Computed example of a mutant assay.
Amino acid sequence: MSKPPARAAVFSAGSWGTAAAKILADAGTTVTVHARRNEIADAINTSHRNPGYFPNVDLPATLTATTDPATALDGADYLVLSIPAQSLRANLAAWTPHIGPDTVIVSLMKGIERDTGLRASEVIAEVTGVGVERIAVLSGPNLAREIMAGQPAAATVACPDENAARRFQTACHTSYFRPYTGTDVIGCELGGAVKNVIALATGIAHGMSLGHNAEAILITRGLAETTRLATVLGAHPETLAGLSGCGNLVATCASPLSRNRTFGTHLGQGMSVAEATAATRQTTEGVKSAEAILEPARAHGVEMPITETIAALLRDRISLTEATAALMQRPTKAER
């Protein structure tokens, strides 16, 4: 007798959540998407499209949607979370009673909680009481629009329980999406969170027409400061050189599809933070997480000059010209 397919509940029906749901369904996993709005759930169920994000892309007919969290989580092997990091705690508190005793929670989130400085996996553990062996992270260079088009992509599934990571790897492996496994949750999460701030900086450089050299400097030195922080907090350096570190950083900093780079480009072209927020129209985690990322850095004496500069710029403490000067006029030193 063949084993029934794995079941996944994907919360929510945003850009990356929809892409993740498509990956899982294409891999043969039974998927239910939790949408906040009835019209989105109805459209997914009837027309097999998400009109809010990908109105012209067909979703697998096996993929269903609901606005009821209990229905979405009924019998789920995996709860896949793709919601803004700052709303995770409140939403998860409401959903926790419906999470099964064996459900593995997979975080797709790339942000740090502002009030606490906690990574998403830490918030999940605190709110749900679930052990770390049932909390995984999926992170990599995963631009949702390219994935929806079936273009090749890869990511790392990190979980302290290697068997859980391998099971989810199987649940999301398709002809166009290649998942790797690992155990370094800290490295995967920080690689995903800090790259958003570096992408803001790279977008600003692009908007100011500072040139490709400047963008390359920011990507390279951004990886250096990400690695410094992550390793101090217990991550493995090789993780930051992999998909969730370097891969994440390159895709987010280089692509016009990246909302963080786009937000930065708006700032570099002279928009205010409020104007850039309105123009971007989607959650930009780098804006939300910059200050929170600095908290552990300061506590451990880790220098993060790019992140410091972006945080100051976002709070209108310095101008674009002053931000550029602050980075270029730092004391010279050995590269490391």
Rank of each mutant, 00 (worst) to 15 (best):
N163A: 11
V132Q: 13
A164G: 05
A193M: 12
A153E: 01
G222F: 07
G131I: 09
L313P: 06
L73D: 02
V106I: 13
R261T: 00
F168E: 00
Y78N: 06
T66Q: 03
R336Q: 14
D26V: 04
A235M: 03
V127R: 14
H236V: 05
P4N: 00
A216R: 13
T46A: 07
P237G: 11
R228E: 01
V104Y: 09
G14P: 01
W16F: 07
V185H: 15
V106S: 02
L200I: 05
V194C: 13
P152F: 03
M148S: 01
L229Q: 00
P160I: 12
T227R: 09
R178V: 04
L314M: 05
T280Y: 06
D74Q: 12
P152L: 05
N45P: 03
C172M: 13
M208H: 03
G286F: 07
R221G: 02
P84D: 04
S272Y: 08
G140S: 11
R36N: 13
C188K: 04
A292L: 04
S47I: 03
Y78P: 06
A297G: 05
P51V: 00
R228Y: 05
A299N: 15
Q86L: 07
A205W: 05
D102Y: 03
V104S: 10
K333I: 00
S319Q: 04
D42P: 05
K110H: 06
A94C: 08
C253P: 06
K288Q: 08
G75N: 03
P296N: 07
G268Y: 05
A230S: 09
A85K: 14
G111A: 08
V31L: 00
L240Q: 05
L79V: 08
S12D: 11
D74W: 12
G187S: 08
A76K: 04
I198N: 07
A205S: 11
T262R: 15
T307F: 12
T32K: 10
Y180D: 06
R89W: 10
K195S: 10
Y176T: 12
R281K: 13
K195N: 07
D161N: 14
E215C: 12
L267Q: 10
I217V: 10
T252H: 00
A85L: 09
I40H: 06
A13K: 03
T46K: 09
R166E: 11
L79E: 06
S255C: 03
